[in-house]
Design a protein around this nucleic acid. Structure first.
Length: 616
DNA sequence: TCAGAGTGCGCC
DNA sequence: AAACGGCGCACGCTGA
């Protein structure tokens, strides 16, 4: 596993921690304001040989596409912090050399600095140590504040005044502004050792790899930064067409819903903005729906899909209700997109967060591109630049493969190792038939069972999910029988659950879960079983895709854009002639990143090249 | 009028 | 002890 540790600075940190048990003693709050090329070149020399640099920037705003970097601060142990004014220094070659040197760059939320510098034509190269990411990795699952001030308070016991941070960094800069700018870099730098020490201690306590994970997250910074900078393009014509289509479908469903309830749909347009958007009974209001159904003899507790689907035959309006809900949901998603179009780039630039999800997954918002409906009428609105292709590659059945590795279930392990179709195998096993005789529908049942029961789904829920997601009608009795047989056959999964419950429910129960890479999620209280059993699987998938991104970064350039990551899928936009080669590289990188974690279970990656996100 | 908890659902 | 997990978002509704 030598390639495993390409971004890992564990050994360096260990020696650093031993050498400097009291980091604040090395903190130098002195600073120099650099306002000319001459001054820069005169002062920067000693910083070139340093192995660790604290980095921070001050900018005229928060948008890398239109705001500017004003100050770049460089801190290093025992030296004054350089505060370089980019508006006054016209030749910054020396600074660029420093920022692309192999020195460790320490900062807090370096993604932002990376982006601001990148759009100013100043590349910032790793390795990185990001105090924010490290603090979140240290406390994954717990509710903690990870602002610079909060971490400085926690690790160094210093109250950091952040009042100058929100001040304007345009025009004349006061001494106070310059001082706080310098201090941010100096304090970020000073956080590395105490944080590394805490990460090491936690690793020992949990038999995990906190520092490794913190370094992995830090190494992902360029990938995350580029996803946000690149964004995705929405074709205006296709988009308008899609909206119109879904509006009609939604309206049709509404009419049928009302008719089935014996109501008339009122479609007059109101001029008053305060008027409700839907006239008459609103299928979007659970209260109104419950009341209307009750009046017609059907009393329910809720109106969500899972409740409705159980009784869908009991009233003719119910299928139309589900249809309207679907169309309305899709339309909501669509309507939310244009307001996120960037005024300059005309693209959607989501906010991508590496460490906000308790599982270790990426999350994405404004807009939530990870939840764009799969409907090809919508996905084909997401297009590539002229002369480019979209490449999407996803890990095949990755969670089930990870579960096979974790549970060591003999059947699952053997099935994957011999390249069998696992859903088909499950169906054949539970229905007592040969795999060759399994029908498409029966395979779908196998899929529903595999994905559900692995995390402890009940028979009742299985019955529901089979119908909702796979369109399979299952009697309660059959669901119960399948549930029982599943755990009789998949003994490894059954044992995994039994042991898990023992560890969780004993007097001094576990309050953390660990991935195969050593990422830890903690709970402040007793974890729910289902959350706890799922965390290592989902988290390991996050480990894999983040390892893949780190390996992918060197391949990203002006012709190879990273667009988005959707949990087990990586999407690139690549110059047309390069697409086949890059697709192959991407596939290999993803396999290599994941394989060591679940060997000898094989990894499979499905890769497609197309013109839009629909894959066409 | 508006914040906020609740409901429901898209993706993996 | 609980009954698949992880997200973000839009909406209807409520109470101040």
């Amino acid at each position: 596993m030598s390639d495993f540790d390409c971004y890992d600075n564990t050994l360096a940190y260990q020696s650093a921690c031993k050498a400097h048990p009291h980091p604040p003693s090395r903190l130098n709050l002195d600073w120099r304001y650099i306002t000319s090329t001459h001054q820069l070149e005169a002062e920067i020399d000693p910083y070139r040989t340093r192995k660790v640099l604290g980095i921070d920037t001050e900018t005229t705003g928060l948008d890398p596409h239109q705001d500017q970097v004003r100050l770049v601060q460089i801190a290093t142990a025992g030296m004054p912090t350089l505060v370089i004014d980019l508006w006054k220094v016209d030749e910054i070659h020396a600074l660029k050399t420093l920022l692309t040197s192999p020195a460790l760059k320490v900062g807090h939320t370096l993604k932002f600095d990376w982006q601001m510098l990148a759009t100013s034509g100043i590349p910032l190269h790793g390795p990185f140590f990001d105090a924010y990411l490290a603090h979140k990795a240290l406390n994954a699952g717990l509710k903690v504040k990870s602002s610079l001030a909060a971490i400085v308070q926690e690790c160094l016991g210093v109250e950091l005044d952040k009042s100058a941070q929100r001040s304007r960094f345009a025009g004349h800069l006061s001494d106070e502004q310059l001082q706080y700018a310098a201090w941010d870099a100096a304090y970020s730098l000073a956080l590395r050792q105490p944080l590394a020490q805490r990460l090491q201690q936690a690793s020992a306590q949990f038999t995990a790899r906190f520092l490794h994970i913190a370094n992995l997250e830090s190494a992902c910074i360029p990938a995350t930064a580029l996803m946000e900078l690149n964004g995705m393009a929405l074709d205006p014509d296709r988009f308008e067409q899609a909206v119109t289509t879904f509006q009609h479908q939604k309206q049709a469903a509404l009419t049928q819903f009302h008719q089935a309830l014996g109501l008339e749909t009122q479609t007059q347009i109101s001029l008053l903005p305060s008027e409700p958007k839907v006239f008459g009974l609103n299928p979007g209001s659970s209260q109104q729906v419950l009341k209307a159904l009750a009046e017609q003899g059907l009393t329910l507790k809720a109106t969500d899909q899972r409740t409705i689907i159980r009784v869908v035959d009991r009233h003719p309006a119910l299928p139309h209700l589900l249809e309207w809900r679907h169309q309305a949901k899709v339309l909501d998603t669509l309507n939310s997109l244009p307001r996120h179009r960037h005024p300059l780039t005309q693209r959607l630039h989501p906010q991508v967060r590496q460490v906000s999800a308790r599982s270790g997954r990426f999350s994405c918002r404004n807009p939530a591109l990870q939840t764009v409906p799969h409907d090809s009428a919508i996905r084909r609105c997401f297009v590539v630049r002229p002369g480019h292709r979209l490449i999407k590659a996803d890990y095949s059945q990755i969670e089930l493969r990870i579960a096979a590795k974790i549970t060591q279930d003999p059947l699952l392990v053997k099935a994957y190792r011999t390249g069998q179709d696992v859903h088909r195998m499950t169906a054949a096993l539970l229905l007592d038939m040969a795999q060759t005789q399994v029908t498409r529908e029966q395979r779908r049942l196998g899929k529903a069972i595999n994905f559900g029961l692995i995390y402890g789904m009940s028979a009742a829920r299985l019955q529901l999910e089979a119908q909702l997601q796979y369109g399979l009608i299952l009697s309660h009795k059959d669901a119960l029988a399948l549930h029982k047989r599943y755990f009789q056959r998949f003994t490894g999964v059954a044992q995994w659950h039994r042991q898990g419950k023992r560890q969780l429910y004993r007097h001094d129960g576990l309050r953390h879960a660990k991935t195969l890479l050593g990422r830890v999620r903690q709970w402040a209280d007793k974890p729910d079983f289902a959350e706890w059993i799922n965390a290592p699987v989902q988290g390991t998938c996050a480990d894999m895709i983040k390892r893949a991104l780190v390996a992918l970064v060197p391949h990203l350039n002006a012709d190879v854009h990273l667009l988005i990551v959707v949990h087990d899928e990586i999407v690139l936009e690549v110059r047309q002639d390069l697409a086949p080669d890059i697709a192959q590289t991407l596939t290999q990188v993803m396999i290599a990143a994941a394989q060591p974690l679940i060997a000898p279970i094989p990894i499979e990656v499905d890769t497609q090249i197309g013109h839009s996100w629909a894959g066409d």
